[in-house]
Simulated scan of single mutants.
Amino acid sequence: MKSKHPLQDYEGPLRTKMGGCFPGERAVFRGHDLHADLKELDWVELYTLGITGKRFLPAQVKLLHALWTYTSYPDARLWNNRVAALAGSARSTGALGVAAAIAVSEAAIYGWQPELAAADFLVRAHECVIAGQSLQDILTLELERHRYILGYGRPVATSKIDERIPAVLALMERENLEQGPYLRLAFEIERTLFQMGRKLPINYAAVTVAIPLDMGFSPRECYLFVLPSFQAGMPPCYLEAAERPEGATFALKCSQVHYAGPAKRRWSDSQ
């Protein structure tokens, strides 16, 4: 029987179904012996098992791998990679640089927040379609509420096809993986938006959550899955900046900055 205060219910030893470490003996991962039962798993298989508690077919795991691989861009101009590069330039540690870069990957406009919102919308839209609502009505209402549909349009290349999507679809075809209901819905949303006069091509956010949704992930599990998806591009940016002279990455003269604030003044004028 539960007490009146939730903390009283959880007082004492930690109760968990996720696993535990028994130094010198074994490690348990979601009820499996990590070094016996799961010793053949690669890292993505283990990572998704930890998130969902489920095992996936080899072709599905290969596709999940690709969703990370195809967005691993070692370009220091990208907002999150820039943080890693500047950390290397400032002679910070790799752990701090990469961790900070992962943290800022949650940018609201073009980071992981759109992925979570896109997954949530796909689930809601799918339920509404099954209930008999027209997709155009669903999109009209969503646009009235939020003015945009996350997962559609791309700030850096609004009118172009997201180069990662054809690569994902080609892999699915090679692995004989059919498009599931969420991925089909994601592309139907793109077509319907075009018919409504909204030229917002589908972007990687919608695809990278639709595929896990079709594998049984929840929106929160989709979010956790995409967390490391940019990480492979970060260490190269950190390393290259660390190899340059300190402070030399993205060096900029003051004369190159267009300033429109208060005019230059003497310190004595402010006394």
Rank of each mutant, 00 (worst) to 15 (best):
F121P: 03
M196E: 11
M215I: 00
W112F: 10
N203I: 02
G19H: 03
C21E: 14
A248S: 12
I165S: 00
E127R: 15
Y152W: 12
E246Q: 09
I109F: 04
Y73V: 11
P23D: 02
A66V: 03
L150M: 11
D137S: 13
R55M: 12
I102E: 05
A90C: 09
V104K: 03
A263W: 08
T71K: 12
F250M: 06
T140E: 13
G24T: 02
L41V: 14
D162K: 02
E115P: 00
E221C: 12
R82A: 14
N203S: 02
G94W: 07
A125C: 07
A205F: 07
K54G: 01
E45F: 06
Q179V: 00
V44D: 04
P6L: 13
T16Y: 06
K2H: 09
H35W: 12
H32C: 12
G20M: 12
H35D: 09
M1D: 06
L41T: 15
N80Y: 05
V28R: 10
L227Q: 13
I102P: 07
V207W: 08
A27T: 14
L116N: 09
A117N: 13
K54H: 11
F29S: 08
H258W: 01
R191Y: 12
L200Y: 14
P235W: 01
N81F: 04
C237M: 02
M172G: 07
F22G: 06
S89C: 03
V98Q: 08
L239S: 07
Q256L: 07
V209I: 11
T93A: 06
P212Y: 09
Q133W: 11
E127G: 15
E144H: 06
M196S: 07
P212W: 09
P228S: 06
A205M: 03
A206D: 02
R154H: 15
P74K: 10
L49Y: 15
V61M: 04
G88F: 08
V207C: 11
P155E: 09
Y259T: 05
S159M: 09
S159V: 10
I165W: 00
V129G: 00
N81V: 08
S72H: 01
L63P: 05
H32R: 15
N81G: 03
P262F: 01
G151E: 01
F29W: 14
G216P: 04
L150K: 13
R191F: 11
L200I: 02
P114S: 06
R91L: 05
V123L: 01
A36T: 14
L14M: 09
S134R: 13
S159F: 15
T140A: 06
P219M: 07
K4P: 03
I202G: 03
